[in-house]
Design a protein around this nucleic acid. Sequence first.
RNA 1: GGAAGGGUGCGAGAGUGGUUGAAUCGGCCGGUCUCGAAAACCGGUAACGCCUCCGGGCGUUCGAGGGUUCGAAUCCCUCCCCUUCCGCCA
Length: 421
Amino acid sequence: MLDLRFIRENIDLVRKGAEAKGIPAQFDEILALDDKRRALIHEGDALKAKRNTVSGRVAQIKQQGGDASAVIAEMDTVKTRIQQIDQEMRDVDAKLNEGLLTVPNVPHPSVPFGRTPDDNKPVFHWGEIPKPDFPYKPHWELTDKHGIVDFNRGSKVSGAGFPFYVGKGAMLERALINFFLDQAAQRGYREIAPPIVVNEDSARGTGQIPDKEDLMYIVTRDQLYLVPTAEVPVTNFHRDELIPESELPIRYAAYTPCFRREAGSYGKDVRGLNRLHQFDKVELVKFVHPSTSYDELESLRQDAEHLLQLLGLPYRTLLMCTGDMGFTQTKKYDLEVWAPGQQKWLEVSSCSNFETFQARRMNIRFRPGNGGKPEIVHTLNGSGLALPRVVAALIEHYQTPEGKIIVPKALHAYTRFEVIG
RNA sequence: GGAAGGGUGCGAGAGUGGUUGAAUCGGCCGGUCUCGAAAACCGGUAACGCCUCCGGGCGUUCGAGGGUUCGAAUCCCUCCCCUUCCGCCA
């Protein structure tokens, strides 16, 4: 969330940002509540100051063995009024908090204005889109043919969107996870293996609740949430901490399964591995000094892109427009890999800067090296990468006319086989 | 799941109703000493909110939230977490 004072002092900027994102926020209510809140604080603090001095006097009188009942009686109305004010404050704070949760983060000036995905700006292309000299098959035909992903048994055992990976399919999955983690380590990310269920505070910290609880599987009996991404536990790793500046930037790479209900998203995009309820992902998370966060965003994006280059998969990078970037981000890149069997781009990574939006809510700060006041860190994260769509694109890209699948060289050391079929 | 103990500042750790925002030690910053450093000694060192004539003033905060009281780190209630023992268990 944004800082109330920041909103008050930059109301035009924040309003424009929300409009550019196409997100209605309760600005008028917030400003009114802010006024009311400050008035209450003003009155309350004055009364509390009085209470403190009078209490001091009572202590003095009693120590000298005097009778303080007259002074105490005098405080009766003060006490009642303070209680009233505290009650009103609770009310105002609750409403204010609700209001603040409707205010989206402000887009960075470099982000293009736009309403729809068509307004996203391609900023980078890599690799040649192959001109097929034989009919390319979609990956689900090939996974069926080789029996390496079993969707039907997944449906039987768990439900649609929970496939089994079998034989070389499972080995390929494991190979990619290790490959991604090793690459991240080489690029300065510390590996971290988090819990895959989190409590309510953590879900709130990264903004999954309120608002997006429909996306998550919830273990109601214990009020735990299955993680929709490793971003949630890993970003919360440093919740309520004061980090020495010398430790920044902190970079983590985490593999987890990810669980998403994807409620109401059935349709043409859900075939095969395109969209699942459970999938594997390696997530990259950074905690950085505010002055470096946009450089860190660029390197984050390059770290993710590098993986696709090593795998030899053509992709494009899009700078997301204001209307398509989401509530919490200030700037976001999507990486889309080309799936030639389906003739379409599949999103495999999303790299974002949140500036202080997440860290404020999670109270993650750093102490400047010169011993100054604590400041809020900037957080970023990006997929590096989401597995199923990489697998889909890889299978489609490396298929042969006979329907075999050639494993790209970068993975040989991990798969220990070079072809499927 | 049962029993007991405990959660205090950057860290360790005192403090059980009245100048305790909080002893003490450590860390960190500055100074003295020194050619320089170490040691020693001296001094400083919370966050947040509101107001400000920008000097500062006031308020809140001792796991979280309520309550009692003129006054709460200290008493009461609810919840969360940690440690140890028992039970269960990959």
